[in-house]
Structure formats: C-alpha cells, structure tokens
C-alpha cells in the first residue's frame, strides 16, 4: 500500500480502488482493512495526512508518503521474496494419495490436466481482453498452473518407469 502511495497522495477510497484493480481480482480489500493499515502507517511515521478534500459525502482525508516511508518501500522492494515451496499443497497430497491407492498415474494426470487447462484457458482469454495488470496477474497464475502440470507429467513419467512403487 505504501508502494501505491509513492506514486502520489491519495485518499483511502482511492487506495482501495487502485489496489483492487491491480492486485485484488480474487480478494478485494475491505474498507476497514484499508483504514486500519493506514492508521498503523501513520503511527509509524511512514505516511502523513496531506489534506482534506472537500466534497459531497464523507470527509475525505488525503494521505501522502513520508521520506521514511519511501525508504521503507525501497527496502521492501529490493529484499527478494524467499522462494515458496509448495511441498504440502493440496494437489500434491491428492495426487500422492491417488497414486498410493492404485490409480493409473496417467489418468490422474489427464484429469488434472483437463482441470488445469480449463482454468488456464479462462486465464488466457481474460489476459487477451485485459490490460497490463490483467496480463501480469494471469501470466503469474498461468506459469504456476503450468508448473503444476509439468510436475505431474514428470511424476507420471517417473512412475510408469518405476512401476507402482507406491502401491508396493
């Protein structure tokens, strides 16, 4: 959110709208969340109130980023995310269980691929219609889904080579 403020002073409602546009496709921000975050940032001196915008409706406070805030954002951006490992994802569990129960690895793969491709198609068509933000988000998701499938393919290939190690 600090990052969004770095582009210019905004008021609370504005912040929520921009965030939703860029990142919140699946999880829109609640107003409460916006304001609680802002007050926490105010307290830490990372943002300041830069004025009140008069207008119809509720009072609109504009918030601007402070120098300390800019430093904080920069630090955050250059700190690499620690790579997430999804060792305990639901899909992994499901596939391993399915295989242990003696199901054909390829069938599991095909079923999963059908499901994956279905959502990938949706993502692809949304990407083609959407703007840059849409594209970035969809690509992100597509690559993850593809990674799942590739893991599945590799697994299926390994299994058919090893021949039922799980079922033992």
């Amino acid at each position: 959110m600090l990052g969004l403020l770095e582009t210019g002073p905004r008021h609370g409602y504005d912040l929520k709208r921009v965030y939703d546009e860029r990142f919140g496709q699946d999880r829109p921000l609640a107003y409460g969340q916006v304001y609680s975050t802002l007050s926490r940032l105010l307290r830490n001196g990372l943002v300041e109130e830069s004025g009140v915008e008069p207008g119809g409706g509720p009072e609109r406070k504009r918030y601007a980023i402070t120098d300390a805030g800019v430093t904080d954002v920069s630090e955050w951006l250059v700190t690499p995310e620690s790579p997430q490992t999804y060792l305990q994802s639901a899909m992994y569990t499901k596939v391993v269980l399915a295989l242990m129960s003696g199901r054909d690895a390829n069938e599991v793969l095909d079923a999963q691929r059908t499901a994956h491709l279905k959502s990938m198609r949706e993502l692809t068509s949304r990407k083609q219609g959407g703007d840059l933000t849409d594209q970035l988000i969809c690509d992100h998701a597509l690559f993850h889904l593809e990674a799942d499938l590739r893991w599945l393919e590799l697994t299926a290939a390994r299994l058919s080579e090893l021949g039922g190690q799980f079922t033992g």
């Binding site: 095909d110 691929r113 491709l117 990938m120 597509l142 593809e146 499938l149």
Partner: peptide, 14 residues
Amino acid sequence: HEARVAAYSDREVV
C-alpha cells in the same frame, strides 16, 4: 507440449 501454449486452444487431445 507446453500447457501455456495449449491454453490458447478450444480443447486438447493427448
């Protein structure tokens, strides 16, 4: 063999 490419299709055949 790329799912991302296949995602441009209407349906897939394996």
